[in-house]
Design a protein around this nucleic acid. Structure first.
Lengths: 205, 205
DNA sequence: CTTACTATGTAAACATCGTTCACTTTACAA
DNA sequence: TTGTAAAGTGAACGATGTTTACATAGTAAG
């Protein structure tokens, strides 16, 4: 066999893998991640429990694959925010996009940044390209460069601000989805106020 | 037996209960909450697995007791922040106290707001007295009353601001402890910058 | 076409888990 | 001392994630 594209068998293998992941995601959205069971996935996929091990090394491996999917989907979603907005408004819109994603994809969201460690281990390492954080950091740097946002502390100031925004939206999404899951309020308005305060737009622009 | 204080048996029962909880907390701090095992608690407490059921209804019940402890400890810790500070500085110190608590009590922190639903279900209900959120909300209301902090939207504005601060510190603590657990940076400085930005103190006061 | 070989799938077993049940032992009150 | 409730145990149940040995189906080479 020469070097060429994926064979039929490989394509079928990849498709089955994907199908398993979709069932795992369904199950997670129905009953939560804690109760996700390998054997239940197997039942719904008409597999014997052992069969899944031809496609994944372990249950943890399945969850990791879901988390990787989540990161890719979030990246796409953040990339759909226009880049030519007023810099502060762009930051706000990125935050709101994060919150929308979390609301619409609860299981995927719960996987974000909750298991896999970060891709880098200090500020001196490069930011992983095409990651959600890279998009946010870029927007912060643009806002600083345009003078629209002022941060202390030079280069690392942008990272500090990106981390703050990230923490804020992640915290809001998590609290709403877990601890405040039965709380009735207009979260969309609250989200926007919080982001405007963080980014520095306290009134209308 | 007349109505009087706890008998010797009741005191011993309560002490054993507490001892079990301490072992459960130790185990959580060592190996994480996900891997906490009833049987491992029993082994370390020199109990048979079934014996624990004289003290707790279920594993979930043990975790709930730990979470209640966590809330009480956090409340104490927040109450140790002076109340006579400059209103904005007080808010910042409350946030930093939250982050300190999270850093020093990782297992207890992971239980905070992560399992039990909130004590109220809409803004019209009263805030649970002596809760961490009540302390924060009170500080926000003081800051607004003093004119030190300006929020839009009347009464609910204070709640929105309290939620924003809460989300920010919770998100920062969580991201640092989970996704950024191997990341090396001066988080204390980052925490303070983020809080100052959120509360509105952008330079020295 | 046949012969290897690999991919795919299964059944059975293992260790562990949370939980329950029947039972014994301990401690205290009358 | 006796009766009763609490405290504690071992064995079992059903469930989990995982491994092993085995069967079958597809495919590539002779």
């Amino acid at each position: 066999m020469n070097e060429q594209g994926p064979t039929g068998r490989e394509r079928r293998h990849a498709r089955t893998r994907q199908a398993i992941l979709e069932i795992a995601l369904e199950l997670s959205n129905e009953s939560g991640l804690e109760e996700l069971s390998l054997r239940e996935i197997a039942r719904r996929a008409d597999f014997s429990p052992a069969g899944l091990y031809r496609y994944f090394e372990s249950k943890e491996d399945i969850v990791a694959a879901l988390a990787a999917d989540a990161t890719r989907l979030l990246t796409d979603h953040l990339n759909s925010v226009p880049t030519n907005l007023h810099p502060r408004e762009r930051l706000i819109r990125l935050g709101l996009a994060y919150l929308t994603f979390a609301g619409e994809n609860p299981a995927h969201f719960r996987l974000l940044f909750s298991d896999l460690p970060a891709g880098r281990s200090s500020l001196s390492e490069p930011v992983p390209a095409n990651s959600p954080y890279a998009i946010l950091l870029d927007a912060v740097q643009e806002a600083i460069k345009s003078g629209d946002v002022v941060v202390p502390g030079g280069d690392d100031g942008a990272e500090a601000m990106a981390f703050a925004i990230w923490s804020l939206v992640h915290g809001m999404a998590l609290l709403k989805q877990v601890h405040l899951r039965t709380f009735d309020a207009n979260f969309d308005a609250i989200y926007r106020h919080a982001l405007e305060r963080m980014v520095g737009t306290h009134g209308r622009t």
